[in-house]
Design a protein around this nucleic acid. Structure first.
Lengths: 346, 346
DNA sequence: CTGAAAGCGCTAACAC
DNA sequence: GTGTTAGCGCTTTCAG
């Protein structure tokens, strides 16, 4: 059993004042209404007895747990750890702790974990795993829970969100590929029930139109998950369809890695036969060969931004001028997986 | 503001019984002392009013928060996410939430975060970032907090720990290298204030002695951190010293990756000129070329094991027969970064 | 300026 | 079986 800790009552007894006086003396904002000598005496006793406020009791009384929930698809996906560090870097110094949960992109799990977090009375929520239509999180927000979504957004809601400039990223990548002479460009699209997947596909179509590039609908294949296996599957499908292409613009890095593997299996070299590009510039990507041309997103900063917005949300209530949308800039990274279109294609 | 939730009192009012009756009816172990009809009525009301127990109040009353702390050096190190998922897989279904904190291997931070966790009244602690001598965690354990350490252990204490079979791993790796003909084998040792670094160096020395291999003290270089930069620095030092070697056994994968880079910079190919081995088989390692020969440790299972021990610790008190030491098996993975010693060495 | 008292939501003796 | 009561440690009216 835990050794019992000193409470306000203990200090009150030691100093001969009432607990409420102790409480006030220890609260920076209430302190001013107490005689300095009394404050000093109380602080000394608190120090001596190694007093540590009981956050549980505080939470019960004030309905603030100083805890936030962080919902992500899967911590083993390496783009999330930097985001979490970013969140922690702003919340932890302010006394907040975060409870991180993994949804594995399963709606059922997401709903259940959201309940768990609400049961624990989190003061706010950073949600990086919402679906485009996500009633449970919308309801939570409506019930007054402070929530901000990260990387994704829930449509038709006024939940603030922090996303990357997907449009710009896709657009610059497409321009990069066309500069290299590519015209028949395939797209491995991400899951369309996630806003990232949907936005990047839309961005691809728009950019192509703007640049007057014909996109063969046959060259757009949609992955069911953002992982290597799906990248591989989609690439096989692409090859089996018999349509010509000289480049594959993938909706994220992991799809691209799977793609390159399958191309290699089929005797196609990247980039000399086919160019492949990714998105995210995830950690450890630099280990891969060829080094992947991709779009860097700001992972750590996304965490910082989302946490900052959540803070404003939690402290201000609903009527403040919190920005609904925050778009973080992205950066094109030209590396080795893209190159000039082969003289004789395929 | 949060919409107010229904409480036991609300249910009591709705059903015309006393709150304590409601409390009992909703508690599986107390339920049997209540008339079935009353239980049914109460459960129906609870359902209808969407009752969710307030864990804060529960925690204040029972002194159990159903929360555990997890202390790790840095979540961006990819060996930790699988461990966390392992922990979560046993704790979460039982209603526990975990608060994860990163120490960045800084003692000051570790001490402060430990205090934060204790202030929050965690029921137990899984600590994967202890130092070999770690008074703060020893004190916490002595004060009655349930704690188990992971990957590392604190010496001269009776804190249960879960580690990998470092001895076996190093030994098998050394045998593997000698089979390939290597005799002049360097060791990039990990930080000696971490038990992993220290154990692996000791294992290296012991194994060499057992196999009657002379180890030149000059060929042992100690890294200050377990990362690529330190692997690179140590390798430069090794090369600069002018001592001959045909293989480098590294205390972890990241040191090995840094090592291979520097060898390449110096015109030395791995494995044809020099063999290099790692330890851990961390996620995404398979992206690296040459594919690294390494020792696989059980990351997910380590999390499961530590969490299971913590559970027993929390539920049993100090007098149960909890194993002090759990050693998880490891597995040698022969891949491409090690090969037969070159005919003409270096 | 400080004390008294109430109460956050829940559990756990103790009555009856 | 169920109600009564007390209280976990804290904040926050309300008096004085």
């Amino acid at each position: 059993m835990q050794k019992k800790r000193t409470t306000l009552k203990d200090i009150a007894r030691a100093t001969g004042v009432h607990v409420s006086t102790v409480s006030r003396a220890l609260d920076p904002t209430e302190r001013k209404s107490i005689t300095p000598e009394v404050v000093a005496k109380i602080q000394a006793a608190a120090e001596r007895l190694d007093y540590r406020p009981n956050r549980i009791a505080f939470g019960l009384r004030t309905n603030r747990t100083m805890t936030v929930g962080v919902v992500i698809p899967d911590i083993t996906n390496p783009i999330f750890p930097p985001i979490l560090r970013g969140i922690e870097s702003v919340l932890e110094p302010l006394g907040y702790a975060s409870i991180i949960v993994n949804t594995d992109s399963e709606r059922e799990r997401e709903v259940r974990l959201l309940e768990v977090l609400r049961d624990r009375g989190v003061d706010g929520l950073i949600h990086a795993a919402v679906l485009r239509s996500d009633p449970s999180i919308a309801k939570a927000a409506q019930d007054g829970l402070s929530v901000v979504t990260l990387n994704r957004r829930v449509e038709n809601s006024n939940i603030p969100y922090v996303i990357n400039d997907e449009d710009m990223g896709i657009c610059e990548m497409l321009r990069h590929l066309t500069k290299l002479g590519h015209r028949r460009i395939a797209h491995l699209a991400g899951p369309q029930d996630l806003s990232t997947g949907q936005l990047r596909l839309a961005a691809f179509r728009n950019a192509a139109k703007r640049m007057s590039i014909d996109i063969d609908p046959q060259l757009i294949v949609t992955a069911m998950r953002f992982d290597e296996d799906e990248g591989a599957r989609c690439t096989r499908e692409l090859l089996a369809s018999g349509n010509d292409f000289t480049a594959v613009l993938c909706a994220n890095d992991r799809l691209a890695l799977g793609c390159i593997d399958v191309l290699r299996e089929n005797g196609l070299d990247c980039p000399s036969d086919i160019s492949v590009s990714g998105f995210n510039d995830m950690p450890f990507l630099q280990l891969a060969r060829p080094r992947l041309t991709t779009v860097r997103i700001q992972q750590y900063d996304a965490g910082i931004t989302a946490a900052s917005i959540l803070l404003r949300l939690m402290n201000a209530g609903a009527d403040d001028d919190i920005p609904l949308e925050t778009v973080l800039p992205v950066e094109l990274l030209e590396r080795e997986s893209t190159g000039p279109v082969a003289a004789q294609k395929r």
